[in-house]
């Protein structure tokens, strides 16, 4: 499993004097978190299966600075941003794809005024484009008749108005999408944003991820899809807390595609 992943770094491309089609920004979660690493690999499998020329920065990648910025540490954020921009510009990167909506939002919206101007795509947007261009084919068979619900990550949805790309992929997989009460622009946060992922919640009467998981479970579907490694963790924890982990799977959309295509 995962042994034959074809992954080249930007440095390797540069040494060959070549430029890949796209840079895959893996992100901290995608690089280090065990659950998120699976999402990273699933995405790479899809890219490999249709021979997309992509590169990663590897050891030259560093945190985008999102959690620092949203904690209020503008210094640390800008240090990170400028270091990353220097690396990205040195390779003349034009297009970036990422599996993390936080990286996506930060590079897309907050890097330009610091000198980093790129076309930035969330992996669901990127795959959706490939689908439209006919380079990627998705067959549903596997999931026929299965029900799914989709959690909108705040930083993809409200923050950047992308509600369709993930839904179109779900439709392609022939899954029946049951929306939660709060969805799209009304979607409820999983509780991780704004650097909450890294600290305990303030005193209250419930954890946010439990509130959201309950809503997802109310749809009576067997799959909860997300498009963000942090949402994935929060909702997986919620499902465990509700002791439903044997009945309900929390998956990223690329993982659904990998299973459906038997990659």
């Amino acid at each position: 499993m995962g042994n034959n992943l074809e992954v080249k770094t930007m440095a390797e491309y540069a040494a060959e004097g070549k430029q890949p089609e796209v840079l895959f920004w893996v992100g901290c979660a995608g690089s280090f978190d065990d659950r998120a690493k699976k999402i990273t690999k699933a995405f790479v499998k899809i890219l490999n299966s249709i021979n997309i020329e992509f590169a990663v920065l590897g050891t030259e990648e560093s945190c985008t600075g999102d959690p620092a910025k949203r904690s209020g540490n503008e210094f640390l954020f800008q240090m990170q941003a400028m270091t990353n921009i220097e690396v990205l510009n040195s390779y003349s990167i034009k297009t970036i794809v990422t599996t993390c909506p936080h990286c996506f939002n930060t590079i897309k919206n907050e890097y330009p005024s610091l000198g980093g101007d790129y076309k930035v795509l969330h992996h669901t947007q990127f795959l959706n484009n490939l689908l439209k261009e006919g380079r990627l084919k998705i067959e549903g068979g596997e999931y026929k008749g299965k029900k799914i619900t989709y959690h909108d990550p705040c930083y993809l949805g409200r923050a950047n108005n992308e509600y369709n790309a993930p839904r179109e992929l779900i439709k392609k997989l022939e899954l029946e999408l049951i929306e939660m009460k709060r969805c799209k622009s009304n979607g409820l946060c999983c509780g991780a944003g704004g650097a909450q992922m890294f600290k305990d919640a303030e005193k209250g009467n419930k954890e946010i991820n439990i509130e959201r998981t309950e809503e997802a479970l109310d749809t009576k579907t067997t799959i909860i899809a997300a498009g963000c490694p942090f949402c994935n963790t929060m909702i997986s924890d919620g499902v465990k807390a509700k002791e439903k982990e044997n009945d309900v799977k929390v998956l990223d959309i690329v993982e659904l595609i990998v299973t459906a295509q038997d990659l």
């Binding site: 503008e74 941003a81 907050e110």
Partner: peptide, 9 residues
Amino acid sequence: NNLGEIDNL
């Protein structure tokens, strides 16, 4: 701008 953007100081 996009709601996700926070100004850079």
